[in-house]
Simulated assay, not measured.
Amino acid sequence: MIEREITVTIDKGLHARPAADLVKTLNGFESKVDFFAGAKQFNPKSVLSMMTASIKQGQTIRVVAEGSDEREVIDWLTKFL
C-alpha cells in the first residue's frame, strides 16, 4: 500500500472532462485506489463518485493505492493531478 498527499493543479479542478479521463485511465490499472478529501472517501474509478467529490484546483487530497501496480498508479496520479 502506498499513500501520498497530492495537491490538484488541474485548471478548475476535477470537472467533467478531467474526471472522465482520470476514471478511464485508472480503470486500466489493477490496484485499488481511494481518494480522501477531508473526512470523505471517494472511488476515483467511478465517474459518479468523482463528479460528487467536487475536488477543486489547489485542494490537497490523500491518495491510497494498493495492488500489484500501486507505484505506477501513484506516479501517474502525481503527474495527472
Rank of each mutant, 00 (worst) to 15 (best):
A37H: 08
G67R: 05
P18F: 09
L14C: 05
V47R: 02
S49Q: 07
T52C: 07
R62L: 14
R4N: 06
L48N: 13
L22N: 06
V47G: 03
F29M: 06
E70D: 12
A20G: 11
A65K: 04
G13H: 09
P44L: 00
G38V: 11
F29K: 08
G13C: 09
R62P: 01
R17G: 01
Q41C: 13
A20Q: 08
M51R: 10
R62K: 15
F35D: 02
I2H: 10
F42C: 09
L77C: 05
A20I: 08
F29R: 10
L48M: 15
K45D: 04
R62W: 06
E66D: 15
L14S: 03
T9W: 15
L26R: 05
D34G: 07
Q41R: 15
G13Y: 10
S68K: 15
S49F: 10
T7Q: 12
K32R: 14
V23D: 07
P44H: 00
E30Y: 12
T7P: 05
S68F: 09
L77T: 01
S54N: 14
R71M: 13
T25W: 01
R17E: 03
R4A: 07
I61G: 04
G67Q: 05
A37Y: 08
K56C: 03
E30W: 11
S46K: 06
A20F: 10
V64Q: 15
D69L: 12
M1C: 09
K24R: 15
I10V: 13
L48E: 14
N43P: 08
L26V: 03
A53F: 03
T9P: 06
E70C: 04
W76L: 09
E5I: 11
L22D: 02
R71Y: 14
L22E: 01
W76F: 15
V47H: 08
D34C: 05
I55F: 03
S49D: 09
A37V: 12
A53N: 07
L26P: 03
V64G: 11
R62M: 09
H15V: 14
G28P: 09
E70F: 11
M1D: 12
R4C: 00
F80C: 02
A37D: 13
D21A: 09
P44S: 00
I2R: 13
I6L: 12
L22H: 01
H15T: 15
I55D: 07
G28A: 12
A20R: 05
Q59A: 02
L22A: 04
T25D: 00
E3W: 10
E3I: 10
G38M: 12
T60M: 09
Q57G: 00
S49H: 10
E70T: 02
A39H: 08
G58H: 07
Q57C: 05
S54I: 09
K40W: 01
V23W: 08
L48C: 04
K32C: 00
F35S: 03
Q57D: 06
T52K: 14
V47C: 04
K79S: 06
A16Q: 07
T78V: 11
K12H: 12
T7L: 02
P44M: 00
L22P: 02
F36L: 10
E5H: 14
D21I: 06
K79V: 08
E72M: 13
K56T: 06
D69G: 09
S68A: 13
I74M: 15
R17N: 05
N43S: 12
P44W: 02
L22C: 09
W76C: 05
E66V: 07
M1G: 11
G38L: 13
I55H: 07
T25M: 12
